[in-house]
């Protein structure tokens, strides 16, 4: 029974992590940017949902649509004002990659401080569907179950999109070789926006979902970014399968290690696994 509880709790946490890690892995692996602001896109999604719920009583699950739309708008501006000019100015992909770290770090600071100014630095939050229901005899708060279902649905949809649609195939081609994708007539500018849009939208959706679980504040994105980076490194940048697998490793290790060994060691063990895997396979488990 205990093992079943730990398994389910680990699976739920993994679902939330995967949503954030998928977006990070997709943009980092295909666009060759290190998106340090990814956690802040999560934070913005969380604030949008919080304000819609608090001011207009909008159902947090419904507000996913608003977070999704707002994320696409943010992605549009990031694409046009940040990535496009950067790509034009950088001489090669290595330069683009390293400069993107600084640019996205600045963007992260900008977003956080914007939220500071607009809404203050206080912790905020709300309660929604926190009554526990029994799943196979294990009590789980209704909202956490819904969040896990939405997260895994998003992951499946993304997988189908990447592997079953023409645009998805183009994205995979683009991530493998940008010049050849150009040669066979793929509109890389359009693709870049689509990739960034999906990445930011996944972060926005994740933000909407987590706002019902945790107290939120402008710097909340930091802890998600670190987890997303580790998961992406573990599974291999750009690999969707790797992001899911990495999330499950981290989710389960947090759950089982906390119970059997102690909370103090959960991060140590999870990141030790990361170091070990990277020592054996530096490009990540599922890297191409």
């Amino acid at each position: 029974m205990i093992q079943l509880s730990l398994f389910l709790y680990g699976l739920i946490t993994a679902g939330i992590y995967s949503l954030i890690a998928l977006g990070f892995s997709l943009s980092s692996g295909t666009l060759h940017i290190l998106n340090i602001a990814h956690g802040d896109f999560v934070m913005i999604g969380a604030y949008i949902t919080y304000w819609l719920f608090t001011l207009y009583n909008v159902n947090p699950l419904l507000s996913i649509i608003f977070s999704f739309s707002a994320s696409l708008i943010i992605a549009f501006f990031v694409d046009k004002l940040v990535i496009n000019p950067l790509e034009l100015k950088c001489k090669n992909i290595e330069e683009f990659h390293s400069v993107s770290v600084l640019v996205f770090f600045a963007l992260s600071m900008l977003l956080q401080n914007m939220v500071f100014l607009l809404w203050g630095a206080n912790y905020v939050g709300y309660t929604y569907l926190d009554t526990p229901i029994l799943i196979l005899g294990v009590p789980i708060a209704a909202i956490r179950l819904i969040i896990a279902i939405v997260a895994y649905l998003c992951a499946i949809t993304l997988h189908l999109f990447l592997f079953e649609t023409y645009t998805g195939t183009s994205i995979r081609a683009f991530s493998q070789n940008k010049e050849r994708a150009l040669l066979i007539g793929i509109n890389v500018n359009r693709l870049r926006f689509i990739i960034l849009g999906i990445s930011v939208a996944l972060a926005g959706i994740a933000g909407s979902l987590i706002s019902a679980l945790y107290a939120i504040f402008p710097a909340i994105g930091g802890s998600y970014l670190i987890r997303a980076m580790c998961i992406a490194a573990l599974g291999g940048l750009g690999s969707m399968k790797g992001a899911i697998f990495g999330s499950i490793i981290l989710g389960f290790s947090e759950s089982f290690v906390t119970f059997y060994i102690g909370s103090g060691l959960q991060d140590l063990l999870a990141y030790s696994v990361l170091v070990l895997i990277l020592l054996v396979k530096p490009s990540g488990l599922f890297a191409r």
Binding site: I2, G251, F259, S263, G264
Partner: peptide
């Protein structure tokens, strides 16, 4: 008595224990 990293995303295992 247990200490956990601040900002932990899931405390179910700790509370279960």
């Amino acid at each position: 008595y247990e200490e956990y990293p601040t900002g932990t995303q899931d405390l179910t295992a700790l509370v279960q224990k």
